[in-house]
C-alpha cells in the first residue's frame, strides 16, 4: 500500500473505483432509502437504456443535439476570434464596443431563448443562434485578453528583426494569443453543453433536452436518468476529443514559457 502511487495504471484504477463506489451507493440508497420511483436505481436505468440504445432513439437525439452544439460552437468561435483579434488590436474600436460587450455578455443563452424562438422559430436556427450566442462572448473576451497580453518584448523583437505591422500581428500576436483563445473555446464548449439542454427543453421537438422534457411530462424518471447520464458522458467525451485535437494540431502554441 505504501507504494500505491507507483502502481502502473493507478489513475485508471482510481477512476474505475470512484465510479464503482458511486454506482454501488446509488444502488443501495435508491433501493433501500429513497423512493425508487423518484431516484431509479442504476440497474433499472441500464435496463431502460438498452432498448433506447438498440432502437437508435438515443443516438438520434444525441446526434441532433451534438450537431446543434457543433454548428453553433464553430461559428461562434470563428466569429469571436475574428472580432476579438480586431478589438484587441484596434484600441478605438475596443473602447467603443467594450461597454456594450460588457453588458451583453450577461445575457446567457437561456435568457435569450424566448426571443430566439420568436426570431427563429423552434427549428434548428434558434438552437444554432443560442449556442452561437453563448460561445461568442466567452471566446471573444478570452481572445481580446490574449491579444492584449502578447508580450511587448516579443512584438518589439519581431519589429527589430524586420517584421512589418501586419507580420507582427499575424506571425507574433495571434500565435501568442492562441493559448488564451483555446482556453476560451474549451470553456465555451462546456457552456454550450449546458445551454443546449434548456434550449431544447423550452423550444424543440428533438434532441436530448426534448427527451428530458417529454420524459418529465410522462413521469418517466428512468428515461430522465438515461438522458442525464448521456449528457455527463457526452460532455466528458467531447472535452477529451477537443483536448486531443488541440494536442495534435496546436501543441507548439500551447506552451507558456516561464520567465527566465
Amino acid at each position: 500500500m505504501r507504494n500505491f502511487a507507483a502502481v502502473p495504471g493507478r489513475g485508471v484504477l482510481l477512476t474505475a473505483g470512484s465510479i464503482a463506489i458511486a454506482f454501488l451507493s446509488w444502488q443501495v440508497l435508491s433501493t433501500f432509502i429513497f423512493n425508487p420511483f423518484l431516484i431509479p436505481p442504476p440497474l433499472e436505468v441500464i435496463r431502460t437504456a438498452i432498448p433506447m440504445i438498440l432502437s437508435g432513439e438515443i443516438l438520434a437525439d444525441v446526434s441532433i443535439s451534438m450537431s446543434r452544439v457543433l454548428v453553433g460552437f464553430a461559428f461562434g468561435s470563428l466569429a469571436a476570434i475574428v472580432f476579438g483579434v480586431l478589438l484587441g488590436r484596434l484600441q478605438l474600436l475596443h473602447d467603443l464596443l467594450d461597454p456594450i460587450i460588457e453588458l451583453m455578455r450577461y445575457l446567457s443563452p437561456t435568457a435569450m431563448i424566448p426571443i430566439a424562438v420568436i426570431w427563429f422559430g423552434i427549428g434548428e436556427l434558434s438552437k444554432y443562434f443560442l449556442i452561437f450566442w453563448g460561445t461568442f462572448f466567452i471566446v471573444l473576451v478570452n481572445t481580446i485578453a490574449g491579444v492584449w497580453r502578447a508580450p511587448i518584448a516579443r512584438q518589439r523583437a519581431a519589429e527589430c528583426l524586420g517584421a512589418n505591422q501586419l507580420q507582427i500581428f499575424v506571425l507574433v500576436v495571434i500565435p501568442s494569443a492562441a493559448p488564451y483563445i483555446v482556453t476560451g473555446m474549451r470553456v465555451a464548449m462546456a457552456s454550450s453543453f449546458m445551454s443546449i439542454i434548456p434550449a431544447e427543453i423550452l423550444a424543440a421537438d428533438s434532441g436530448i433536452g426534448y427527451l428530458l422534457q417529454k420524459s418529465s411530462m410522462l413521469l418517466q424518471t428512468n428515461r430522465i436518468f438515461v438522458a442525464l447520464l448521456t449528457i455527463c458522458l457526452l460532455g466528458f467525451v467531447f472535452d477529451r476529443i477537443f483536448r486531443f485535437l488541440v494536442a495534435r494540431t496546436l501543441a507548439r502554441f500551447m506552451s507558456f514559457v516561464a520567465v527566465t
Binding site: P151, A158, G162, Q167, L171, S255, V257, V259
Partner: peptide, 26 residues
C-alpha cells in the same frame, strides 16, 4: 534589441532553428 526576459522575447511556438529563421523570412 536584445531583451532580459528571453522567455517573452523568443517565439515559444518555434524551435531554435525556426526562431533564427524568422528574421530571415521577414
Amino acid at each position: 534589441m536584445f531583451f532580459q526576459d528571453a522567455g517573452s522575447a523568443l517565439f515559444p511556438w518555434l524551435n531554435v532553428e525556426e526562431n533564427v529563421r524568422f528574421g530571415l523570412r521577414v
